[in-house]
Design a protein around this nucleic acid. Structure first.
Lengths: 239, 239
DNA sequence: GCAGGAAGCTAACATGGATCAGTTCTCGTG
DNA sequence: CACGAGAACTGATCCATGTTAGCTTCCTGC
């Protein structure tokens, strides 16, 4: 059920058997939601967080004009709104990009967990800080990278994050975003997403077909993106 | 010494006398650094965090090409790298924008504090999540706002954050960034910063002279910026 | 197997902001 | 009190990306 989540944690730190059990004990009910639903609305008071079991979610911020910026994408194993545990309400929405299975974790359970396991407290604090690091990298992309580098960078990021939870085979993974949604991540219009995608294709770096990305030349793609995975903190230093 | 920091916390939650004492006990030495120094280098192993007493710091991310994006600005009362407590090393640099006084807090002290005060643990976790929310708002700015809205937004943000720690008088506050640095925050060139600043001036919204911003019409400025301070979490819900 | 809608794609044209190449201002220093 | 350096400012030009307005393809439901 939450194997992907355990894998994601294990990529960053050691877990004792007891800790793993405690984490599995967090999950209350598991629900299934359709694509394109707003699961959490900004400002709404929250007493639970969403642990994504399968499918994709996103953090979306909208401007009064209707323009949307996606601030982070979430895949299996991610807590989409763990930060709500301390924030109490969010400054963005959480939306489903695809149909998704979601394990509900009550904040009460998290309070108990954190009072029993200082180490897991630091570990989950750390996980919210990784989300912040990912958003910081997106900030750099939006501020300073060109459209093609930005797009290549996001694909490298997803490739790395999906590989951790076993969702990459042969440099290929499912990519369910429409070009409009892709643009909402990259700060681009769908027209320019289309053009940029074709340019990546033309350079024989990737292919995107039937909601699936295939990376032909990962090293070249990383170099276009100036991608360095350090910001994903894939090392076990003990937190 | 760390009054500003206490004020900033008090803007978000209640602190008991005992908790306040414990927080004051965090501070080791206090140092003074000149402007334009790299205080923390990305990747470097850390066992302390920097609590800013006076002056401005920034989180900077550089591209191999030498282009720089500033991801957040820090003013008196901010922990510039509290996230290093769990991250162990950073994915960005911390630089001084001005001469600054900095209180050094050893991570050992923080570990002790968090094991003694679960409430303060949640509070500091919360504070790192506010930093993330600020960065998310910058992401929205960079992705979807025009240059003038972005600039207006940042000024509104600073106005709000500086007011909390008592650094705003008569809608006016010290603003020590050069136009180049301002552009590094906004994802703009200094040329365009200059022009955009003139446009804000021309519309009688603000004035920037002698390293000082004066806001003439805060409501109009907020409306240009589409500014809503919800993302700064200025309410006391008990964390 | 056909209708309708969403997603993908395209071309022509518009524009916000970058780039380049300076000039002017300011202020600290000898 | 002149000089030098950094910061502020400017004009001309360019170009990456947006905008508009389609057309095409692919599903999905009936």
């Amino acid at each position: 059920m939450i194997e992907a989540h355990i894998q994601k944690l294990r990529a960053r730190d050691h877990l004792s058997r007891e800790e793993e059990e405690a984490i599995r004990g967090l999950v209350g009910s598991v629900i299934e939601v359709p694509a394109d639903k707003t699961l959490v609305r900004h400002g709404e008071q929250l007493n639970q967080s969403l642990l994504l079991v399968s499918g994709w979610l996103a953090r979306a911020k909208d401007l009064p004009s209707g323009q949307r910026q996606i601030a982070e994408l979430h895949v299996a194993g991610d807590f989409a709104d763990l930060h709500a545990f301390t924030l109490k309400y969010l400054d963005h929405d959480v939306i489903s990009v695809t149909r998704a299975e979601i394990a509900i974790v009550a904040h009460e359970r998290l309070t108990e967990l954190t009072e029993r396991f200082p180490h897991l407290t630091r570990l989950y604090w750390f996980m919210t800080n990784i989300d912040a690091a990912i958003q910081r990298e997106w900030t750099l992309s939006l501020g300073r990278r060109t459209a093609i580098a930005r797009m290549a960078h996001l694909i490298c990021e997803l490739n790395t994050r999906l590989a951790i939870v076993g969702l990459v085979q042969d440099n290929s993974f499912e990519f369910p975003l429409t070009q409009v949604e892709f643009g909402e991540c990259l700060g681009l219009t769908s027209v320019h997403v289309n053009r940029t995608l074709q340019e990546l294709r033309r350079r024989n770096l990737i292919e995107l077909q039937n909601r699936r990305v295939k990376i032909f030349d990962l090293e070249a793609l990383k170099s276009v993106a100036q991608f360095d995975d350090a910001y994903l903190y894939l090392d076990k230093r003990g937190r």
